[in-house]
Simulated assay, not measured.
Amino acid sequence: MTANSACQHQHDARINGVTKTDAPVTTHGTIPRALPGICFDLRAKIDAFLAEKPDDDVLRNVQRQIRVSMDVIHESLRRYGVDDLSLSYNGGKDCLVLLVLILACLPTCASASASASASASSPSHDAPQPSTIDSAPRPLQAIYIVSSDPFSEVEDFVAASAEQYHLDLKRYALPMRPALEAYLEDTPAIQAIFLGTRRTDPHGEFLTHFDPTDEGWPQFMRVHPVIDWHYVEIWAFIRHLQIPFCELYNRGFTSLGGVTNTRPNPALALSGDTSKFRPAYELRDDDEERLGRD
């Protein structure tokens, strides 16, 4: 295969589009709520949780992690603005937590931007409050790099959650590097991408909250707001805030890849029965998270 034909093959393999229908109806047949209401409700839920005084050590750790992560997200929004930011989203638990946290930060960002604009355009110190339209958060841009053999349950959840949360999601059926190259070619304004990478993930050990991509990769800032979250904290957040998640997690899957390299986690097998598994949120050890991945 020549270089030109290989390039053409990659372009043809690309699935590049926004995962939303022409009519405002989700894949479940219900009309999605408007984005501002979703963002403000998520922020209210998180603020209410942060105001709690839990007896549980895990929930107290989650509260601490939330504060750190939201500081990183706010700093990202300050540096780049929502128009130059994107989220790497594949429907997994980690990027789902990250998505919820980002959306909860958008009303603050939008209101601050609107207030700043109002103050700059008004000579009075008593600048008017921004209107609902002015302060409405804009849809978050996102990239979904599709596995070569995706689970139908993952595909369905990505599509449904992208509609639910109004993601401006583009899909690429390519390996990671050419997918990122194609995405940045299609959306050249993107300067930074939020990633749901955690410290215990492959290659996550030495990452910080902000890391430029390595030499030889498409150039952008990688932002890791949940890098120091533990597995049990991810699930405590999802379950405490009652965030819908991919149904595969209820079948013992703890790390989602493709059909050919992912299976239910053997650490969750019921009494040694490899056909029945406890749900993912019952796993406790970070080191056992990827036992179901080849």
Results as ranks from 00 to 15, higher is better:
residue 5 S to V: 12
residue 8 Q to M: 11
residue 9 H to A: 13
residue 15 I to Y: 10
residue 17 G to P: 00
residue 22 D to S: 10
residue 26 T to K: 08
residue 27 T to W: 13
residue 30 T to R: 10
residue 30 T to Y: 09
residue 32 P to C: 04
residue 39 C to T: 04
residue 51 A to L: 12
residue 52 E to Y: 05
residue 53 K to W: 09
residue 55 D to T: 14
residue 59 L to S: 03
residue 60 R to Q: 07
residue 67 R to I: 14
residue 73 I to C: 11
residue 80 Y to G: 01
residue 81 G to A: 04
residue 81 G to H: 04
residue 86 S to R: 02
residue 88 S to D: 06
residue 97 V to C: 15
residue 108 T to R: 04
residue 114 A to H: 03
residue 117 S to R: 11
residue 120 A to C: 14
residue 122 S to Y: 10
residue 124 S to V: 11
residue 128 P to Q: 03
residue 129 Q to W: 05
residue 131 S to I: 01
residue 134 D to V: 11
residue 134 D to L: 11
residue 137 P to K: 04
residue 141 Q to W: 08
residue 147 S to P: 07
residue 151 F to M: 11
residue 151 F to W: 14
residue 157 F to V: 04
residue 160 A to W: 05
residue 162 A to P: 00
residue 167 L to N: 01
residue 170 K to L: 09
residue 170 K to M: 15
residue 172 Y to G: 05
residue 175 P to S: 09
residue 175 P to N: 12
residue 176 M to N: 10
residue 176 M to K: 05
residue 180 L to P: 03
residue 182 A to R: 01
residue 184 L to D: 01
residue 184 L to R: 03
residue 188 P to M: 09
residue 194 F to C: 11
residue 195 L to C: 07
residue 196 G to P: 10
residue 197 T to V: 04
residue 205 E to K: 14
residue 206 F to Q: 13
residue 207 L to Q: 05
residue 208 T to S: 09
residue 213 T to H: 02
residue 218 P to F: 01
residue 223 V to P: 02
residue 224 H to I: 10
residue 227 I to Y: 01
residue 229 W to T: 00
residue 231 Y to C: 00
residue 232 V to F: 08
residue 234 I to M: 03
residue 240 H to Q: 15
residue 251 R to A: 14
residue 252 G to D: 06
residue 258 G to V: 01
residue 259 V to F: 12
residue 261 N to G: 11
residue 263 R to E: 07
residue 269 A to F: 10
residue 270 L to T: 13
residue 271 S to Y: 09
residue 276 K to A: 15
residue 276 K to H: 15
residue 277 F to Q: 02
residue 277 F to S: 03
residue 279 P to G: 05
residue 280 A to S: 11
residue 282 E to C: 08
residue 283 L to Y: 00
residue 285 D to Q: 14
residue 289 E to R: 03
residue 290 R to D: 07
residue 294 D to M: 10
